[in-house]
Design a binder for these strands. Structure first.
Lengths: 279, 279
DNA sequence: AATGGACCCTCCCACGGCGGGAGGGTCCAC
DNA sequence: GTGGACCCTCCCGCCGTGGGAGGGTCCATT
């Protein structure tokens, strides 16, 4: 039927040549064949040699381009296989993924700056104290991974709106679980100015028990708070103390009051009362 | 020797409790034990149970913090084991890594924006043409991965300095290999105004042969050039043509002349002359 | 002393996207 | 016919976990 030399007359390319043309490696092309992403135009049944048609260069170059943009192979496959409205949707989803990574990397960068230039991990002064019992009016929210900042922002907005006209005693408080995993249930609240206070509409009551605490104060933007928590929790555990949820943040100086470097946040973690004590 | 109950009297913690305290998973702690990064204070020889001391919380929290910053485990190990000047150096190296990733992600983001909003991959008008033979005076450079932009910037600076006082005919040209791998040898040059020209000091001669070409024009910032190359090379290969290095860029409108959206770049790839022709 | 449930152990597999290399066949030009 | 460039398949390794199988331990309650 087919003269074997047809391969060349058809203008088919060997895998090595095709790889160089499309800025892909031979390994990559074989992998894309195995996974069905980009099968060669012809595979010699006797030798297993792969031959690619020049018309496949467009797809191969698309794959190369999208790989440089760090798009996962399954998404590339879907992109090649789908038509226009869907294709744009896939690419927008990838764009969002990259945008989010940039956001998180920026926070990482700030922390690493401070870690490197601050000469390592020290620098937080830890104090042991006692907190009185506090009755707060709070707004609650659940924050998925990476959306903590916006959830807090939104909650503060709702809180201040609900507090409108009601006297309250600064600072604002933030309440967080000990476990900083995803799906965090957080709360933002304020303490009323009067002792026996009414609860404004739209807010819930949260009573914070009093007791012994371990505390520190953080100066700087909130992206650097993990450093302060690190020092705080290390201090708690080194003293053999048991932390009690929720962890409390008091926003002494916050956004709108000063540039980010001067924001001041007091971190408070209540610990179990020591009863039968030794050292 | 030791009462087994000492474990509790010593305040040692089981792996699950320690994991919750330090915001690490049990799997992670076991892995850190296996790799020697964070071995438990005590391992029961009979049962294999791991027990952690409260004093290990500081290191464990440091590991958790640095992992959130995407620092690789070997670097974390080095950080824990090394003293101050070295520790800061390691962290600065990680900071640089993150900073570079942000830079590259920003370029990716721009491309994905254009791909998604531009409705996919079309939009480049391809033309077939002929280029005359050109004699350029060039500056050469080698660009590692990710430093292409700065190498070109630097080369243009050196070129313009060396051309000072010598008449030359716009535009500037950039010459690139077909294979966009790392360790690229690139060149930036200009064509002299006179036919029989002298070579200014510090520059080298590059003669670009004439012949048939495939061309397109790109409007926009240089980070989006890969899209244009994608269309250009796809067109070359679909026509069964063989591209010939170097690929040439002519900077018709460039930085300093207009905002980035209006930069105009002509991309030219010379192809093999067709002799024995069919279709 | 038994039971049950929460906890712990080890070992293996999987992910993504290749690169490296072993061991062996094929192509093609000289 | 011969050598060297090219191609094939298969397997391992990376990195840092998560998932799960299959089985032991701990401890509080009955």
């Amino acid at each position: 039927m087919r003269d074997p030399d047809d391969v060349l007359r058809d203008g088919l390319l060997t895998i090595g040549r095709f790889a160089r043309l499309c800025r892909l490696s031979v390994k990559q092309l074989r992998h894309y064949d195995d996974t069905g992403l980009l099968p060669p135009a012809r595979v010699d049944p006797a030798t297993g040699y792969r031959y690619y048609a020049p018309g496949q260069a467009r797809d191969a170059l698309t794959v190369a381009l999208l790989r440089e943009l760090d798009v996962p192979l399954p998404v590339i496959a879907a992109t090649l296989a789908s038509a226009e409205p869907e294709r744009a949707r896939l690419l927008r989803a990838e764009r969002d993924r990259v945008a989010e990574r940039i956001t998180r990397d920026r926070a990482r960068l700030e922390l690493l700056e401070r870690l490197a230039d601050g000469g390592g991990l020290p620098g937080y002064e830890i104090t042991l104290g006692r907190e009185p019992r506090r009755r707060l009016a709070v707004v609650r929210a659940v924050a998925g991974p990476g959306e903590l900042a916006e959830r807090i922002d939104g909650s503060v907005g709702r809180l201040l709106a609900a507090l409108d006209g009601t006297p309250w005693r600064p600072p604002l408080w933030g309440l967080f679980p000990l476990d900083l995993a995803d799906g965090m249930r957080i709360a933002v609240g304020a303490q009323s100015a009067e002792e026996a206070d009414a609860l404004p509409d739209g807010l819930e009551r949260e009573v914070l028990p009093g007791g012994p605490t371990v505390e520190t104060v953080h100066h700087g933007p909130y992206t650097q708070l993990p450093l302060a928590y690190h020092a705080l929790m290390a201090a708690v555990h080194e003293r053999g103390l048991r932390p009690l949820a929720p962890v409390r943040e008091a926003y002494l100086v916050g956004p709108g009051e000063a540039p980010a470097e001067e924001w001041t946040t007091r971190l408070v973690v209540r610990v179990e009362e020591r009863t039968e004590e030794t050292a």
